[in-house]
Design a protein around this nucleic acid. Structure first.
Ligand SMILES: Nc1nc2c(ncn2[C@H]2C[C@H](O)[C@@H](COP(=O)(O)OP(=O)(O)OP(=O)(O)O)O2)c(=O)[nH]1
Ligand SMILES: [Mn+2]
Ligand SMILES: [Mn+2]
Length: 353
DNA sequence: TACATTTGCCAC
DNA sequence: AAACGTGGCAAATGTA
């Protein structure tokens, strides 16, 4: 059974005697996609296993599961949005989780296309409003770092700048996939990614990884100061907090166990920023809905995906809704840098422009 | 049958 | 996973 990591591991490492991957805490060898990537070329079955994994993941979690969750009365999927779902202040979504609908692979995007506008008037559309580089903007506010602050006042795209530098290509040649990986790098380094971690993820030598991270902190020196001050402050107070005062208690930050303590330190670095994002979003949601009610619009707020709101709108309300979210969302908080929101419109969630 | 744990992976 | 953070879900496996 390819779906059993235990059985798969026995075939790969005992019967086929392929090179051993990293060890899990139980002593077995990992068969996750990251590890299997390294075995590509060692045996033709590896590519097939990776393909099997992608297909069974999408089929099992989404394609098979979602149709059964359509409410027969409304013909719609009704997820739970859990107000206290996350320790940072984020909400979570369950039964089903609509905050992790695929988007990355083309096959995944096909699943997203199943979410369509239908019930808002005679000619309904979906409208999405997503904050641009949101946690980097909050970081700029916290740190006051000159390079970060200047970049956002000039409306630059830091994810793209990082991509251009890390992949050694001019800005015009940065692809969406490169920008996505640069995003992982930007947030990863900010929240404690180590040279070891980066070397494993990007399959580069640890020295090279260390050099990328060194350049990141050299470019944005305020970030290191933020990290050190935040960890120290959390040690003293016993909690981390957002700009708006939301707290997360982290007693483990004073643990004698170094692993436990360091994990708490990374959580402490993350919480004020991820949590402020959540606070801003909650403020924006309340104000947007209030304004929609006040104007008596037929548009509906249907989804929240952490820094993104999705509305189902009649065609004749699209322009007004775009104006409304662009008035309210960027002004939900006044930070040291502007907040920016990207609006897209489409018939399905999978193709929005 | 019910529930917990482990492994893996989707999203932000 | 010691080794970015925050979640939820499926399948296999183990226990009661
Ligand atoms: N720690 C961490 N946070 C992430 C990661 N991916 C997304 N986030 C957080 C930080 C982002 O600012 C926030 C919203 O995600 P988005 O995909 O919308 O990215 P972002 O707004 O930064 O860029 P964008 O301009 O919308 O493409 O979620 C990640 O891999 N690690
Ligand atoms: Mn965003
Ligand atoms: Mn987003």
């Amino acid at each position: 059974n390819i779906g059993s990591p235990q059985q798969l591991s026995r075939v790969l490492f005992e019967e086929l005697k392929l090179p051993k991957t990293r060890r899990l805490k139980t002593g077995s060898y990992s068969t996750d996609a990251q590890s299997l990537e390294e075995l590509r070329g060692a045996h033709p079955v590896i590519d097939l296993i990776l393909e099997y994994r992608e297909l069974t993941k999408l089929k099992g979690t989404y394609v098979d599961a979602l149709p059964g969750l359509v409410n027969p009365r409304t013909g719609r999927i009704h997820s739970d949005f859990n107000q206290t779902g996350a320790a940072t202040g984020r909400i979570s979504s369950s039964n089903p989780n609509l905050q992790n609908i695929p988007v990355r692979s083309e096959l995944g995007r096909q699943i997203r296309r199943a979410f369509v506008a239908r019930d808002a008037g005679p000619d309904p559309y979906l409208l999405s409003a997503d904050y641009s580089q949101i946690e980097l903007r909050i970081l700029a506010h916290y740190t006051g770092d000159p390079a970060l602050v200047e970049a956002f006042r000039r409306d630059e795209d830091i994810h793209a700048v990082t991509a251009s530098q890390v992949f050694g290509v001019p800005m015009e040649k940065v692809t969406p996939e490169m920008r996505r990986r640069a995003k992982v790098f930007n947030f990863g380094v900010l929240y404690g990614l180590t040279p070891y971690g980066l070397s494993v993820r990007e399959r580069i030598p640890q020295e090279e990884a260390a050099e990328f991270i060194r350049r990141y902190f050299e470019k944005y020196p305020g970030v290191r100061r933020y990290i050190e001050e935040t960890v120290q402050r959390t040690r003293e107070l016993g909690y981390a907090e957002t700009i708006f005062g939301r707290r997360r208690y982290l007693p483990e930050i004073n643990s004698p166990n170094a692993n436990v303590r360091q994990a708490a330190e990374r959580a402490a670095i993350n919480m004020p920023i991820q949590g402020t994002n959540a606070d801003i979003m909650k403020i924006a949601m309340a104000r947007v809905q209030q304004e929609m009610d006040r104007r008596g619009l037929r548009s509906m707020m249907v989804l929240q995906v952490h820094d993104e709101l999705i509305f189902e709108c009649p065609a004749n309300e699209l322009e007004e809704m775009q104006g409304l979210v662009l008035d309210i969302m960027p002004n939900a908080a006044q930070l040291a840098v502007p907040l920016k929101v990207d609006v897209k419109v489409g018939k399905t969630w999978g193709d929005m422009e």
